[in-house]
Each structure stands twice: as C-alpha cells, then as structure tokens.
Simulated scan of single mutants.
Amino acid sequence: MPILALIVIGAAAGFLATRIMKVNTDVPTTVAIGVGGALIGGLTLRFLMMLTGWAAGFIGAILGAMLLIWVWKTYVK
C-alpha cells in the first residue's frame, strides 16, 4: 500500500510541480518527476512528516519535484 500511495502522491506532486515550474512534459515523465520528488521530499522531511502526517509529505513531494525540475533544467538541458 505505501508504494501505491507514493505513486498517487507523486503523480499529483509532479503535476503541480510541472505547472508551477512551467514545464511541458508527457504523463510518464510527470509521474516520474513526482515520484522522484516524493522520494527526495519524503527522505528530507521525514521528521516533519511524522509530526504533521500526509500534508507535509505532499508538500515535501512538490518541493522535491521542483528541485528535480530545476536540476534537470539547469544541468541536463
């Protein structure tokens, strides 16, 4: 069940992050960005997530996805 939650939260976070950062990507890339961001955000905000629950995890996923987009735009393209 946690993997399914990670995919769902990651997909939503990826969608929001790509819209905030104004990046046009296809659906698999958006989901991959979101899941990667959820992993980054979940690991870095683990303590905060224990205190506040899924809301902090979702915010961390969005921030992590935005970080991945920034790194991708800065160093890959």
Rank of each mutant, 00 (worst) to 15 (best):
G60H: 09
T52C: 08
V35Q: 01
G14L: 04
G64E: 03
A61D: 05
T29H: 07
G60V: 10
M66I: 14
L68R: 00
T52K: 05
W70T: 10
M49Y: 07
L45K: 01
I59G: 13
A61K: 03
I7L: 15
L67I: 15
K77E: 11
I20C: 02
A5N: 02
I33A: 04
A65F: 04
I7W: 01
A12L: 15
M50Y: 10
A61H: 04
M50E: 14
F15L: 15
L6K: 05
T18Q: 10
I20N: 00
T18P: 02
W54T: 09
T30I: 04
M49C: 11
K73A: 12
G10A: 13
I33Q: 07
L45A: 12
P2T: 08
I3N: 04
G10H: 06
A11D: 00
T29K: 10
M49W: 06
T18C: 14
W54Y: 05
A17S: 10
P28C: 11
G60L: 11
L39V: 14
A56R: 09
I20Q: 00
G10Q: 03
L67E: 02
V71I: 15
V27D: 00
V23H: 11
F47E: 11
W72M: 14
L68F: 08
T74S: 14
T30L: 10
A11W: 03
L16D: 00
T44M: 12
G64S: 09
F58W: 08
T30H: 00
T52H: 05
I40Q: 04
L51G: 13
A11R: 00
N24W: 02
A12C: 13
A11S: 14
G37C: 01
L67C: 12
T30G: 01
T18M: 13
G14V: 07
A11E: 00
G10T: 05
V27P: 00
K22D: 13
W54V: 13
I20E: 01
L51R: 11
R46N: 15
T29P: 02
T44S: 12
G34N: 00
G37F: 03
A12D: 02
A32V: 15
F15D: 03
M49L: 11
F58D: 01
V71S: 12
I59F: 15
A61R: 02
K73T: 10
M66Q: 04
A5S: 06
W72D: 09
A65R: 08
A38Q: 02
I9C: 08
G34Q: 03
R46E: 13
L6C: 08
I40L: 15
A61C: 09
G53S: 08
N24Y: 10
G42D: 03
I62T: 12
K22P: 02
V35A: 05
G53I: 12
L48N: 04
F47W: 11
I3Q: 05
I69M: 09
T44H: 06
T29F: 04
M21H: 05
T44C: 13
V35P: 01
A61W: 06
L43R: 06
N24V: 14
G41I: 07
F15M: 08
L51M: 14
A56F: 14
G34T: 08
F15K: 04
A61N: 05
K22I: 07
M1S: 13
L51F: 15
T44F: 15
L48T: 09
G37W: 00
